[in-house]
Design a protein around this nucleic acid. Structure first.
Lengths: 127, 127
DNA sequence: CATGGTGGTTACCTCTTGGTGACTACGTTC
DNA sequence: GAACGTAGTCACCAAGAGGTAACCACCATG
């Protein structure tokens, strides 16, 4: 794309820039991916927790709440004792899974490029 | 991908998770895109500043420094008065441009999905 | 002489992220 | 009775991202 044709619509709220919203919270893309990896696109809290090494209980719940508010996932509470909570992808969530898999796939195929990155561990958000 | 085949190599430093490093700093992907949009893959400080609405002088310089250290861009100082500084994509940077354009392209084609996202403006990193 | 464009640096400040650890409450198992 | 698994909530805290504003030096223009 040439600069001239680009600068006009490269505003602060243009679509390309807004894509980043989905990656703004550390765990969102990983939860989307994990749900998608289940054969029925759904998983319970405990399964998610065990599938995401490094996530804390708090961040898991907090991210799930945000994703529910965003319309990416659905939260279903089973009326059993103890209550079983199942999270599943909404149609919107499934669309974003496409993006996530696109990015993750690029990472798998370009692992050598990632290795070449001289990332300064300070001055960056931990990922 | 099935859960069983996935959980084994889904470690904290796996390639898919490391891809996010490139998006961890707010302006990195936009700078890569802007440089790529120039016909020669290079641009001067002032051009970049004017092409990225909303970026502050400090963040532009800071991000450029980090990208230089990461090996994504090259910084060339012209020995004129006043000195002209030109930033250009390295081969590694060009590889990552591929990823950025992939993501931005998805955003353009799925702008409606982005519109459906009910993003809570609080509790998210500004993008 | 003042302004503006070149390309920065520095101090200061705020907001958010994301972490830990303690606590709840219920039921089953050891 | 104690421990464990279900699914959380809450208070507290540290680190870092990223913003503003002032300042530097140089030169050309009005």
């Amino acid at each position: 794309m040439q600069a001239g044709s680009d600068e006009g619509n490269w505003r602060e709220d243009c679509a390309p820039r807004r894509v980043m919203e989905i990656f703004a919270t550390k765990w969102t893309s990983m939860i989307l991916h994990t749900l998608h990896a289940q054969h029925d696109g759904a998983a319970r809290n405990g399964v998610l927790h065990r599938s995401l090494p490094g996530i804390s209980k708090k961040m898991l719940v907090q991210t799930l709440r945000e994703m529910e508010e965003s319309g990416l996932i659905h939260r279903h509470v089973e009326n059993t004792v103890p209550p079983a909570v199942e999270y599943s992808l909404t149609p919107l969530g499934i669309r974003f899974v496409g993006l996530v898999e696109l990015v993750y796939g690029w990472g798998r195929e370009n692992a050598d490029a990632l290795d070449q990155l001289q990332v300064r561990q300070t001055s960056r958000r931990k990922v």
